[in-house]
């Protein structure tokens, strides 16, 4: 090798990846994979192309309809409800806390709507759901650290119940201000359709199977100081 090439190799940037590889791996494999696409013949490809054009035209017209009505086919719609005052926000939040649970010994914090803030009426309930979820996660971590199997099972059941009844997944491609079908009883937290819920479910399954690393990390990242 010439001296120039040797010098080029020595000049290679020294980069150390500061990534938690295990956590990243776990997060990625918890997300869904694309379905394998079958091979399509030439004529099939043409038919598919024509079909795609037809669907695109349909989507364009449907998109216009969506913009006009604010509703899509699944009943999910643009959330136009607005919280009018901090007082109303707190009332909605307290209503939500009455329908949710916290681990033994925990108390609901008393947040409020920050000044000059506009938010939807489902947001206080979503906040309460998130507080409940994080509290139960940290309670579970505490139970694991202290070998309290009964408390661990209680936390796991509470979290599964929360995921089953208080966590909704918006249709793929939904905007951030999407709301579930009319009649959905609050409180609820809305997750994007990006694999986040599957990741959370896997985190709980792993913790129940004796692999709580991601759960501990979640509590450390999200839990209030003192519970981490």
């Amino acid at each position: 090798m010439s001296r120039s090439m040797d010098r080029l190799e020595r000049a290679r940037p020294d980069v150390t990846a500061a990534i938690d590889r295990d956590a990243l791996f776990a997060r990625i494999v918890a997300t869904p994979q694309d379905r394998e696409q079958p091979q399509i013949s030439g004529s099939g490809r043409r038919r598919l192309l024509i079909g795609c054009i037809a669907v695109a035209v349909l989507c364009l017209t449907a998109g216009t309809a969506f913009a006009v009505t604010g509703f899509n086919l699944f009943g999910w719609h643009t959330d136009t409800t607005i919280v009018k005052s901090p007082r109303e926000w707190q009332r909605l939040y307290h209503d939500a806390t009455r329908r949710l649970t916290l681990p033994p010994g925990e108390h609901w914090p008393d947040p409020t709507l920050p000044p000059d803030t506009v938010t939807s009426r489902s947001q206080p309930g979503g906040t309460a759901v998130a507080i409940s979820q994080i509290a139960w996660e940290c309670y579970w971590v505490h139970a694991i650290r202290h070998g309290d199997a009964a408390a661990g099972r209680q936390a796991h059941a509470a979290l599964d119940n929360l995921l089953a009844h208080r966590v909704l997944v918006a249709p793929p491609g939904s905007p951030e201000d999407v709301a579930p079908p009319v009649g959905t009883r609050p409180p609820f937290a809305i997750f994007a359709s990006d694999g986040g819920v599957q990741f959370v479910r896997k985190m709980y399954r792993d913790a129940a199977d004796g692999h709580p690393a991601t759960l501990i990390q979640s509590c450390r990242a999200n839990g209030p100081i003192g519970t981490r």
Binding site: I28, T31, Q33, E36, Q37
Partner: peptide, 10 residues
């Protein structure tokens, strides 16, 4: 890596 996982079969 996320894309690689999603498209692993291909």
């Amino acid at each position: 890596m996320t894309i690689a996982w999603r498209r692993l079969p291909s």
